[in-house]
């Protein structure tokens, strides 16, 4: 049986991943999402407790930092690091995956701008797929910082972009190019010289990939 924080009334399970469950429900009359980290029986108790605690705290603090950097993300309402519970406001919208075909370049440019704001605050998202970007009234919201980290290595920021680029490529096929260009434009307009360095690194990562593929065919 699932255990829940007091006052939380579960409505439905949104998602069950390897690491956490995501529940939609109400808490103090607010529509919220509860992220519950799953205890792992294969890990010794002390190690599991420690990982759940530190990861819950880290995610809460990254969400806070992201908002401080000026990007839209869920508000953290309640944290219980011992239980591994994180209650956040529910971002009600459609994922970028669903709306990207009909959305204009302005939204994509905002996506790029916000990713740069995140990176300039040394936040590496860690799983920057289009399904982790929610669009509400043509504004992007960023969710799931569970694999994120505070870093200053531009390689990590380029990795973030690479993840987004690759998933757009596989989802959109040839039509991805225009969409991706709008995102990159937003990123560079916001970040100037520093953002160009990161884009250069991204291109380098892409070349590494091609080199690998060419080698396979030898």
């Amino acid at each position: 049986m699932s255990e829940f924080p007091g006052e939380f009334i579960p409505e439905k399970l949104l998602y069950r991943g390897a690491e956490a469950e995501l529940w939609l429900g109400t808490w103090l009359n607010m529509k919220v999402v509860l992220k519950k980290r799953i205890k792992k029986g294969y890990r010794v108790r002390e190690l599991d407790d420690e990982l759940i605690k530190s990861r819950t705290l880290k995610e809460a603090s990254l969400l806070y930092e992201a908002k401080k950097a000026g990007i839209k993300a869920p508000y953290v309402l309640h944290v219980n690091p011992v239980k591994g519970w994180l209650i956040m406001t529910f971002v009600e919208g459609k994922s970028l995956t669903e709306v990207i075909q009909e959305e204009n370049e302005e939204l994509l440019s905002k996506v790029g701008r916000d990713i740069y704001l995140m990176h300039s605050s040394k936040i590496y998202h860690g799983d920057l797929t289009p399904s982790n970007i929610i669009v509400v009234n043509h504004e992007p919201y960023f969710i799931d910082f569970g694999l994120g980290e505070k870093v200053s290595d531009i390689e990590k920021f380029a990795e973030d972009l690479n993840v987004l680029q690759k998933s757009l490529q596989s989802k959109l096929g040839e039509s991805y190019y225009k969409k991706w260009k709008a995102i990159v434009n937003g990123y560079i307009t916001q970040g100037g010289e520093t953002s160009r360095e990161i884009i250069d690194r991204l291109n380098e990562i892409n070349k590494r990939g091609r080199y690998k593929q060419r080698k396979k065919g030898e």
Binding site: E19, K40, Y42, V44, L47
Partner: peptide, 9 residues
Amino acid sequence: ETSFAMLLE
């Protein structure tokens, strides 16, 4: 314990 838990995660 540490390395095997990493592998299984």
